[in-house]
């Protein structure tokens, strides 16, 4: 019986070890990437945030109605000219695929508009946008840095407010559309 017990100990060690090795502790849920290939440009992917339903936070001084309720954003001079927003980000199929932050500010260092898109199963992108708007209210920008799936990519992006015209009762007021056109630069070691 001692031999059976020892065999059981070894079996227990092997079984738990194998389970820890082969069964992933973390398994992120993935949505299929919806990508258009633009000839001589790269891959285009469109994300959007429905407004107001996907807006998590507006961080700005002196808001009459804070979002979320209970937010205590500092009212000091340091952050007087800055605005931070958080959103859930959706793909073209309107499924939530990540979260994003948008920071806009004007200060001695100049005006800035930036996005960080965090897509848990894929990686993150850091977008630097131009301060001025193009015709149609579009703002252009560029990919500054990316992680994981986006680490080897370079390219451009745009943001645009698109008002809802469906007239449906439950329709959002509109959406902020982010159009990313990235291409692989190759050659850089992945992280």
């Amino acid at each position: 019986m001692i031999k059976t017990f020892i065999a059981g100990v070894l079996l227990g060690v092997a079984a738990v070890g194998a389970a820890l090795y082969f069964i992933p502790v973390v398994d992120q849920t993935r949505e299929s990437s919806l990508i258009n290939v633009i000839p001589n440009v790269g891959n285009e992917e469109v994300f959007h945030a429905n407004i107001p339903t996907d807006r998590i936070m507006i961080g700005a001084p002196k808001q009459a109605t804070p979002l979320p309720v209970g937010l205590d954003w500092p009212d000091d001079a340091l952050l007087a000219d800055s605005r931070a927003e958080l959103f859930k980000i959706r793909n073209a199929r309107d499924a939530v695929v990540g979260v994003a932050s948008r920071i806009a500010a004007s200060s001695e260092t100049g005006e800035l508009v930036e996005w960080v898109l965090h897509l848990p199963a894929r990686g993150s992108v850091y977008l630097l946008m131009q301060s001025g708007l193009q015709d149609g209210g579009m703002r252009l920008g560029a990919l500054r840095a990316g992680t994981h799936e986006f680490a080897d990519l370079r390219g451009e992006a745009s943001e645009q407010w698109i008002a809802d015209t469906s007239g449906a009762d439950d329709a959002p007021a509109g959406r902020i559309e982010l159009r990313a056109r990235f291409a692989s630069i190759g050659g850089r070691q992945s992280q």
């Binding site: 001692i2 227990g12 060690v13």
Partner: peptide
């Protein structure tokens, strides 16, 4: 039956030891 019990107790002890 006692061999099965020994095996199961052994497996539990092995799993606990690894933890």
């Amino acid at each position: 039956m006692k061999y099965l019990a020994a095996l199961l107790v052994g497996m539990f002890c092995g799993a606990a030891a690894l933890a």
